[in-house]
């Protein structure tokens, strides 16, 4: 790790001005950023921690929308989203281990947009909005491929809004070593549509499986997708699975998420 300065602002405004410094970067739970810095693969000069910004924390529900502060930990989401949005709470409860869940934040996860991160699948499937210090970005416009998002330099995710589905479920098929999803599928049944967010599988990062969405919108059952196939083109191939295997798992996990949706 190289030397860096740590700033701990108490408000979003303070954070935004601290982020204006050269080579400044937000720090959420540090679960991704700190190991990267230890390996000397990242070398920010200033880290602006979101940890003490109370306005960026907590889960609340208003009508059909769940609002989660950008600095809310996975552990908090697992508890506080449980009754209103069990699909999201279930997803959060399976991220990493207790230490990761007690530090890692939803803002950090979405900003990082790891191709195998769990939250992006939920955000795409729920349909929602990423709120930053500067603007609101619709879920469908937020993710721009592996590790890339619509965020500008110095832009901070302050709040994440989810449209609470009638039913939802997240199925995570774990990569045996990291236990990140090898393939993760979030299925959300809304009153007017079904949305399916898939993570872990594609070289372009999280995506919506639109054929399945159409099939499920008219018949929300695992059988509805039995005739569909997922193409292996553009799927990730690595130590833990070939593109064919991942394509196959997308369908299996989608079916299981539909059956388990509540």
């Amino acid at each position: 790790m190289y030397d860096f300065e740590l700033v701990k602002p108490k408000s979003v405004d303070e954070a935004v001005s601290a982020l204006a410094a050269e080579d400044a970067q937000p720090l959420g739970g540090g679960q991704t950023l700190i190991p990267t810095m230890k390996q000397r693969l990242a070398a920010p000069a200033v880290l602006v921690s979101t940890h003490d910004i109370d306005g960026m924390k907590g889960v609340s529900t208003d009508g059909g929308v769940m609002t989660v502060g950008g600095a809310t930990t996975h552990g908090t989401v697992a508890k506080e989203a449980a009754s209103a949005f069990p699909g999201l709470a279930g997803l959060a409860a399976k991220i990493g281990d207790p230490a990761v869940r007690n530090r890692g934040t939803i803002g950090g996860s979405l900003a990082n947009n790891d191709p195998a991160a769990c939250y992006p699948a939920a955000l795409l499937a729920a349909g929602g909005t990423v709120v930053t210090n500067a603007r609101e970005i619709a879920a469908d416009d937020f993710f721009e491929g592996m590790f890339t998002t619509a965020l500008e330099e110095g832009e901070l995710i302050t709040v994440v809004k989810f449209n609470i589905p009638e039913k939802s479920n997240y199925q995570k098929f774990e990569q045996p070593a990291s236990r990140f999803p090898l393939v993760g599928v979030f299925v959300a049944k809304h009153s007017d549509e079904v949305r399916v967010g898939v993570t872990g599988a594609s070289e372009d990062g999280v995506f919506r499986w639109t054929e399945a969405e159409q099939a499920l919108s008219s018949n929300f059952s695992a059988e509805a997708i039995s005739g569909l196939t997922v193409s292996a083109d553009g799927m990730i191939g690595d130590l833990h699975g070939t593109p064919d295997y991942r394509a196959h798992l997308v369908k299996v996990m989608t079916g299981r998420a539909v059956s388990a949706a509540e």
Binding site: F173, P176, T242, Y245
Partner: peptide
């Protein structure tokens, strides 16, 4: 190792 991917393959 008999990983899921290998067993499936």
């Amino acid at each position: 190792p008999l990983s899921p991917a290998r067993v499936w393959a």
